[in-house]
């Protein structure tokens, strides 16, 4: 301290860098890792089957599942199954989502709807829709009606909850701003409340898309000729595990495509974030 001019090189101990303690806790996607893990797993699985420490009775080799899949492609059955499933998914999911957004908006905006419908939604949401399948068959027929209805009901409730949750979280100051400029009620709903709730609605759509695929298999358990779920169930009852694996991979692929589509929608609609 005696020499005020000298700032560096303290006399007692040599200078050393301050130890770094920050960073971390911020996982970032590394693009190449996922394919490597995926390929390594499949390669190990195939290797296990070829060498024999994975018995074909327990798990068929990936190559066999792939053969089963190619067989589907060759016979053209793949398109029949996909078309039937996608139609059910699309109708059920979009009707469920649209109705869900509508009812969720009512609950989010109006006291009467909130008091009347919110407890009802909370009561029915946790009921597994699969348990109601027999009822749906009685109400909507054994054909497409009951299958679409299962998916519709399954996606409706999470969408309602996501929508009114999103509306509840819209910044009240923005709504007050709208009122202070004399905007009409409709303008406030259309231009302030719904766009403000959109992030929550889209993440609700992500969840309901996954639920829709889960329910698809359940719905196709009953009297479905075509459909990925029907194909899997048939394979299961015949112990054709190679076909079963092929069907499950197909379902997982559909899930990935849906998630990707919703991701694109988020990128487009939420580019302001």
């Amino acid at each position: 301290m005696s020499d005020g001019l000298r700032e560096s090189e303290g006399p007692e101990s040599p200078a050393k860098p301050v130890p770094f303690r920050g960073g971390g806790f911020l996982p970032k996607p590394r693009r190449i890792v996922a394919p490597i893990v995926f390929i390594a797993l499949i390669a190990f699985w195939e290797f296990g089957c070829r060498v024999g420490f994975i018995s074909p009775l327990i798990l068929p080799a990936p190559s066999e599942a792939f053969d089963a899949f190619m067989n589907l492609v060759r016979t053209g059955l793949l398109w029949d199954h996909l078309a039937a499933s996608l139609q059910r998914l699309l109708i059920g999911w979009s009707a469920g989502t649209l109705l869900g957004i509508f009812v969720g908006t009512l609950i989010g905006l109006f006291s009467l709807a909130r008091s009347g419908l919110q407890p009802l939604v909370s009561a029915i949401f946790p009921v597994p829709k699969i348990a109601l399948l027999p009822l749906f068959v009685i109400w909507f027929g054994i054909g497409e009606g009951s299958k679409v209805a299962t998916i519709l009901f399954g996606t409706f409730f999470p969408t309602v909850i996501a929508t009114y949750g999103g509306i509840d979280n819209v910044d009240r100051n923005l709504i007050r701003m709208g009122q202070s400029f004399g905007l009409s009620k409709l303008s406030i709903i259309r231009k302030i409340i719904l766009p403000g709730a959109l992030p929550a609605i889209l993440s609700g759509a992500r969840i309901s898309a996954a639920i829709a695929i889960i329910l698809l298999v359940a719905a196709e358990m009953i009297a479905a000729e075509y459909g990925v779920g029907a194909y899997i169930l048939l394979a299961g009852s015949l112990m054709a595990t190679d076909q079963l694996i092929a069907g499950v991979a197909l379902l997982s692929l559909m899930g990935l495509v849906f998630a990707w589509l919703i991701g694109q929608a988020e990128k487009y609609f939420l580019k302001w974030r």
Binding site: N173, L174, R176, M177, S180, F181, G182, K191, I192, P195, G196, L198, L270, W272, R273
Partner: peptide, 16 residues
């Protein structure tokens, strides 16, 4: 168009 008009502390702009 709007006789009494506010300017808010937190700006109240629509982020989107």
């Amino acid at each position: 168009l709007n006789p009494l008009t506010y300017i808010f502390q937190d700006f109240a702009l629509l982020p989107w």
